[in-house]
Design a protein around this nucleic acid. Structure first.
Lengths: 128, 128
DNA sequence: GCCCATCCTTACCAGAAGGTAAGTATTGAA
DNA sequence: TTCAATACTTACCTTCTGGTAAGGATGGGC
C-alpha cells in the first residue's frame, strides 16, 4: 500500500512537511481547493490538466489520511463527492506561500536568463 | 544525465521551487550549509547520517547547477572542497522556514496522537 | 434492454530515484 | 613500497512513482 511507507521518523520539520506534500499533484490540489473552497472529483480532474484518475484519487486518499483534506460523500446517482481543505490543509497552504513566491521569482529570473543565453555563451566549462 | 530532465515549464511557483528542492537530502544540505556557512564534502557526509557519497555529490552538483550553492576547490593534497550557500540558496532557506515550522508542529501533533492510538481504537473503518 | 454520468478500481508497465560496493587520483608520511 | 586522507566516479541493482487503459457500481432516462 502506498500510505504505509510514509510517516517515518523525521529528521526535521521540513522532512515531515515534505513527506506530506511530495507527490506530483499535491501542491496543485492544495492550491485548487484553497481557491474554490470545495471541489468535486471531476472538477479537480478537469482543473489539473494532465493528471490521471489513478494519481488523483491516490493523492486525494493520502491527503485525506494525512488530515489535509475532507471528503464528503453524497449518496446520489450519479454519485457526488466533494473535497475541501481541513484547518491543517489551510495552514499548510499558508506555510507554502513563501516557497511559492520564491519559485515565482526564480522562474522570472530563469526566463530572463534564457534570453541572454540565446545571445552569448555564458557558462564556460568549469575546471574540476 | 540527471540534471537535464528538470527545469521544465512550471505550472506555478511551488512547482518551480519543488523542482529545485525535491531530492532526499537537499533540504538537509541547505540546512547544514545555512548553519555552518561553509562545509567540506566529508563534513557534509558526516553531518547527514545515512547519505551515500553518490547521492551527496549528485545533489551537490544539481544544487550548484541550480545556483543554490557555491563550490570552491583548493588544489591541495589531499584535496579540499568547500561548499557554501549563494544568495539564492539563503533566500530559499528563508522561504522554507514556515514549511519547516508547519512540519515541526505536525510532528508534535502526530507524536501526541499516536499515544492515544495505543489506548483506544480511534479511527473506525469508514464507509465508501 | 441499453446508454449515460460519476467516481473510482485494477493490472500492468516504464522511467526515475536512490542504494551498494568497488575503484580512481594525488602526494606526503612511515 | 605501502598506506593514509580526501573527494569523487562508476557499474549494477532495487524500489518508488507515475502513466495507460480497461472495467465496475449505481440508478435514471429513452
Amino acid at each position: 500500500m502506498t500510505s504505509s511507507t510514509r510517516r517515518g521518523p523525521y529528521i526535521c520539520g521540513i522532512d515531515a512537511a515534505m513527506d506530506v506534500v511530495s507527490g506530483k499533484w499535491k501542491s496543485l490540489i492544495l492550491w485548487e481547493l484553497n481557491n474554490y473552497g470545495t471541489r468535486r472529483f471531476g472538477e479537480l480532474r478537469r482543473g489539473l490538466p494532465g493528471v490521471s484518475e489513478k494519481m488523483l484519487i491516490q493523492h486525494l486518499r493520502e491527503m485525506e489520511e494525512d488530515g489535509l483534506i475532507h471528503r464528503e460523500v453524497y449518496r446520489e446517482v450519479p454519485p457526488r463527492v466533494e473535497y475541501s481543505l481541513t484547518e491543517d490543509g489551510k495552514s499548510l497552504n499558508e506555510a507554502l506561500r513563501p516557497l511559492g513566491e520564491w519559485g515565482t521569482k526564480r522562474s522570472a529570473r530563469l526566463a530572463a536568463g534564457s534570453e541572454l543565453i540565446d545571445q552569448a555563451f555564458i557558462t564556460p566549462p568549469r575546471p574540476r
